[in-house]
Every structure is written in C-alpha cells, then in structure tokens.
C-alpha cells in the first residue's frame, strides 16, 4: 500500500512549561506501494513518534496520513509494528505469542495452526514453539516479534529500531532474513534505524530527518542490486554520504 504523509505536526506538553514542545513540524513524505523506506535522524527527533502516528496509536495535531487514499484514524491489524524491545507476552509460549493476533481476529483454529507453523519455519524458530520468551536470546525474541507481525499478512510493516539491541553478528543475520522476506515484495516497510550501514543494506530509499522539531532533511535513493555487498565502493560511498548528511542534520 502506498502511504501519503501530509503535513503532519505533533507537539507534546513539557513538564512545568507553558508551551508545548514541537516534535514534528509539517512532515510530508510519500512512500510507494511495497517500498522499503528507512528513517534515520538524531536521537529524540521524533522518528518513533511519526511511526506511532503511522500505526494509528497516536493522533497528530494537524495533517493526515493516507494509506491508498484512505485516512488513518485508528490502529489496524493490516499495519503491524515491530518494537526494539520485542514486547512479547511473557506468559505465552513462542507459538501462542505468534498466534495471538490471529486469535484476537477470531480466525479458525486450523488456519491459525497452519499460519503459525509457516511463520515459525520462515523465521527459523523450529523446535522453540513451546519455549517462553525468557528462555530465548534477544535475536530469537525479535524473530518471534517479526513472526507475530507476518502472520497477520500485513500490508504495511512498521519497524522501530528492531535490531538496535542486538549484537552485530545477530543483527547482520536478521538483516539478511529481512532482505529475503521483503524481497517477495508483499508489503510496504517503514524502518527506523540509527545504523547507516543497515539503512543502505536494506532500503529502497533512506529518509534523513533533522531534529527539534523534525523535518525531512534529505531523501537518498539506494539504487544497488540485492543482495548488496557491504564492501563495494558504491555501498561505502552511499553509506558515508548518509552519515555525513545525518551528522550535519544533528547539528
């Protein structure tokens, strides 16, 4: 689904201050159907806030977001979110966590079972169906969280620094899996990251935000064939460019 972000503004009340602090200022951005877009920018500039508005969890002060021409008013199961800290239900096993969304949507048992099996296979969690989240490593927890989103057949996948808490080896492995999953072009992905390397490796376009209040500083297309080679000169040049733009955006 194509996403049209139209002049979104958002401010938050500050403690003991009269004036609200403006976080997002007139953000406009167009995201193509089945595109993979990364958002980078200084910490605290409002990327997560924008993603929460996209999810429908937060209302903007002004402006609107259209998904295939229809305005977002509330959260919908067709727009799934993957959080940095996984947010799994500690009292549910891996398969129950993955099945939860389908159960909530009252899908029939056989379908749920098949779909969960499919997702577990897809993210490589075979053998851990009965494990509880506290028994899993960070990388495995994030796989559960991704599987939980994928079983919903999302049209839009929103990811907020999903690999930010992982070690670099696990992160690269999950990045490869994400490339494989998104290679099928079944959904649109909006991906927040701090890691320029990650942004170039995964994205069709990288959007750089500047801070306080956030504005779109620059949009850089990544026209490299997949799978991408992190050590190729074009890759490194692009990564350095994004790094330069985001450093200057942070100032």
């Amino acid at each position: 689904m194509a996403i049209e972000i139209k002049e979104i503004s958002k401010s938050f009340p500050q403690n003991e201050q009269e004036e609200d602090l403006s976080i997002l200022n007139n953000i406009s951005l167009h995201i193509e159907d089945r595109e993979f877009v990364s958002l980078v920018g200084p910490s605290g500039c409002g990327k997560s806030t924008l993603l929460r508005i996209l999810a429908g969890l937060l209302k903007p002060d002004s402006g609107q977001i259209l998904v295939d021409g229809r305005a977002i008013t509330r959260p919908e199961s067709s727009r799934c979110m993957v959080f940095q800290d996984y947010v799994l239900f500690p009292w549910m096993t891996v398969s129950s966590n993955i099945a939860l969304g389908l159960q909530v949507r009252k899908k029939d048992k056989e379908y749920v079972h098949k779909k969960v099996q499919w997702a577990i296979e897809l993210v490589g969690l075979n053998g851990f169906e009965k494990a509880y989240p506290h028994q899993l490593s960070g990388g495995m927890k994030q796989r559960v969280s991704i599987a939980r989103a994928l079983v919903m057949n999302p049209e839009i996948l929103l990811m907020d620094e999903p690999f930010g808490a992982l070690d670099s080896f696990t992160r690269m492995k999950l990045q490869d899996e994400l490339v494989r999953l998104c290679g099928k072009k079944e959904f649109t992905t909006v991906f927040i990251t701090h890691d320029c390397d990650e942004a170039v490796y995964l994205s069709d376009r990288v959007v750089v935000f500047s801070g306080s209040p956030a504005e779109v500083k620059e949009i850089l297309p990544v026209d490299l064939p997949r799978p991408r080679n992190r050590t190729s000169p074009e890759f490194i040049a692009l990564r350095n460019q994004i790094l330069k733009v985001s450093v200057s955006a942070a100032e």
Binding site: P75, S77, D85, V87
Partner: peptide, 10 residues
C-alpha cells in the same frame, strides 16, 4: 507497550 500491541491487533 503490550496494550499497544493488542490495539494494533484490534
């Protein structure tokens, strides 16, 4: 955040 996850699942 658990509430948010459930909200997204409607």
């Amino acid at each position: 955040k658990l509430y948010q996850v459930l909200d997204i699942m409607e």
